[in-house]
Amino acid sequence: MDEIEQTNVEQNDVLNVGYTDVPGTMLTESNAICDFIKKTKIQDVLNWGRKNSLWFTVNAMGCCGVELLATGMAHYDTDRFGIIPRNSPRHADVLIISGYVTRKYLPALKRIWDQMPAPKWCICFGDCAISGGPFYESYSTRQNIEDYFPVDVYVPGCPPRCEALIQAFVELQKKIEAKKDKGTEY
């Protein structure tokens, strides 16, 4: 858990930078503007933009990671949905958990999740990410991943096909459009 504490400290350091030094900027500590926008039609426009630019992290954790990589290749052309693989979590909107989460890997995965800028979404890809798969009841596997990440879409399969991942992205787009996703608090 030391990794997570370290991430929190780093985030606080980022927040404590004096933005008031920049001329022409105002600093507010309330969410009033953001909450007001969420009730208006502007949020629909924002969501339209967000759902059409779902960039995902190339975080291949297991054998499902091969399907994840293949989805990002030219053959499936996911760019027509606005889905682009990104190598840095700081550029990405969607974290795809594509394998079993071990006790040792969970802090690193949380760190990746914390590095992604909001709004962000999470997809569980494959049986291992959903339930542990064949590694369910292992001494080193973490079960119930939704306790740690707000998972929007589950994709069953061992491994699921690339089309299933594209389908998951389309479902996620529908959720975002309907304001039912867990990435944003409405």
């Binding site: 339930s131 369910y136 292992s138 001494y139 080193s140 079960q143 119930n144 939704e146």
Partner: peptide, 28 residues
């Protein structure tokens, strides 16, 4: 070598190891 710090000293490959997770995965 492979295990995280929290599992050190539990010797998980011994036959009498009891620390397997017993939470039912809710997705199942």
């Amino acid at each position: 070598l492979l295990l995280p710090e929290e599992l050190h000293g539990e010797w998980p490959w011994r036959k009498d190891y009891k620390g397997f997770p017993n939470k039912t995965a809710r997705n199942l």
